[in-house]
């Protein structure tokens, strides 16, 4: 049986599906019987999902224009495909 700290050490790899079949089985057995580790696993998984679910905001209008303008200037100075 894996200890709680061994489970903690592998939590991230387990969530990323980067553990061997044997280790996976050991982790799943522990998680089934240890409520603390299960909640830790579940809330860490949710943490990742929440961040993965956020979309970046579009650039603010002014910033978008500023960026395009800087690029346009650079491209005029130094046309693409010239180097």
């Amino acid at each position: 049986m894996l200890t709680c700290s061994e489970v903690l050490a592998e939590l991230s790899n387990y969530l990323d599906n980067e553990v061997s079949a044997e280790l996976r089985q050991g982790l799943e057995e522990h998680l089934k019987d240890c409520p603390n580790c299960w909640v830790l696993f579940d809330t860490t998984r949710k943490t990742i999902q929440i961040f993965r679910g956020t979309e970046p905001y579009p650039l603010p209008e002014g910033l978008h224009d500023k960026l395009q303008e800087a690029l346009r200037k650079r491209m005029e100075q130094d046309p693409p495909g010239q180097n």
Binding site: P56, L59, L67, L71, P79, P80
Partner: peptide
Amino acid sequence: QAKEGSVEAFGELVNRHDRKIFR
């Protein structure tokens, strides 16, 4: 295309990635 001189192609690469890079 951008390497071959397309300004539009580079512009599209910028539009495609700017918000994630800004984040």
